[in-house]
């Protein structure tokens, strides 16, 4: 399976409909593809190009720019250990070293059972809680090597599935604009007038 499923196409079209230009939906749609397959397949890029009206090459150019998109299968859990300054000051190198030992892989690798991919990550906006990491973009803060062991145990035993979805799913809650409430989009070239409320009067 690699083109978007019908359900995802419906969702994709809803997302595309929020932007004055369809290409804006490219990154969200790539996330949808990664959510579906765990990584971005060639067919998904072709399909997304068709959906937003750009060439596959353009989709590829955009997709490869961003760190989160994977083009080959990765582990069910992608463990990103932050190594930027605040975390490094608080011992992220030891944490990474420990993780490599524990998982038996180097940063960038995936365990043979396909459970874990280990990555070196950059600052995760949790610097005061250093050292920190993300598993499929869910945080763990102020980790000791022992905490890391426990986390890997929990993940291996699938004890955190309620909180940590498989790789590909980022947000579990999606925005939904109810049709009766949404303003809707207008192509910018069709707008010629100032918004109604700029009439010099109070709106309320």
């Amino acid at each position: 399976m690699s083109r978007l499923t019908d359900a995802h196409v419906a969702l994709a079209n809803e997302i595309i409909g929020r932007y004055p230009r369809p290409k804006s939906a490219l990154v969200p749609l790539l996330h949808l593809a990664q959510e579906q397959d765990g990584y971005i397949t060639r067919d998904a890029m072709v399909h997304i190009g068709e959906l937003v009206g750009v060439t596959s090459a353009e989709v590829y150019g955009t997709a490869t720019f961003y760190e989160m998109f994977k083009f080959e299968p990765v582990g069910k859990y992608v463990v990103n250990i932050c190594g930027t300054m605040s975390c490094a000051l608080m011992g992220s190198e030891e944490l990474m070293h420990h993780a490599e030992q524990r998982l038996g892989i180097k940063a960038g690798g995936t365990t043979p059972d396909g459970m874990f991919t280990l990555e070196h990550a950059e600052c995760q906006a949790a610097c005061t809680e250093a050292p920190c990491l993300q598993v499929n973009y869910r945080y763990r803060y102020r980790l000791t090597p022992a905490d890391l062991d426990e986390l890997i145990d929990d993940l291996s035993a699938e004890r955190l599935t309620h909180e940590i979805p498989p790789h590909g799913t980022v947000a579990k809650v999606r925005q939904h604009i109810p049709s009766h409430r949404g303003v809707g989009v207008v192509a910018p070239e069709l707008v010629t007038e100032s918004p109604a409320w700029l009439n010099g009067k109070a709106a309320l």
């Binding site: 932007y19 804006s24 990154v27 790539l30 989160m68 925005q175 604009i177 809707g184 109604a196 709106a203």
Partner: peptide, 14 residues
């Protein structure tokens, strides 16, 4: 009121 605006959540990819 006559004030209407959509807020669209958009997200990056690293």
């Amino acid at each position: 009121t006559n004030f209407s605006v959509d807020i669209v959540l958009h997200w990056g990819a690293g």
